[in-house]
Design a protein around this nucleic acid. Structure first.
Length: 114
DNA sequence: TGATTGACGTTAT
DNA sequence: AATAACGCCAATC
């Protein structure tokens, strides 16, 4: 109990993640950058880590800039993320490799992404 | 109160 | 191309 005033950081990240269209992918740096924090990709991961299990946020659509699930599947929830990404209709390998080049989210959500 | 770690990224070697 | 080190800030020990 210390965060009486929730920092916009967390809110911004969650809002952006919630804005990711279905079947689209975003990177931690991308989220952090759009949130207004170009140098805090790690904190983004921290926020996602603190998410509840029943969250509706598509945190599984958030990957690192290389286009694969954090830690290459060594993380305890990576497999969950992979499973969810597959449920989205995306192509994901067992290691969490996905086609970021194809599913890269520009942050326009429904406009002329390109 | 201080030190270490971390769902990462970028730059340098 | 791959590997190393640095940066950033919050949470945890």
């Amino acid at each position: 109990m210390k965060a009486l005033a929730p920092l916009p950081f967390r809110e911004a990240v969650l809002a952006l993640v919630a804005r990711i269209p279905h079947g689209r992918l975003a990177t931690y740096g991308q989220i952090a950058l759009m949130a207004g924090f170009p140098r805090r990709p790690r904190q983004v991961g921290m926020v996602l880590k603190g998410l509840p299990e029943g969250t509706e946020l598509p945190w599984h659509r958030v990957v690192n800039s290389q286009g694969y699930v954090p830690s290459k599947g060594r993380w305890w929830g990576a497999q969950v993320q992979i499973a969810r990404l597959r449920a989205e209709g995306l192509e994901v390998d067992d290691l969490g490799n996905l086609d970021l080049a194809t599913h890269r989210w520009d942050g326009q959500s429904g406009k002329g992404q390109r």
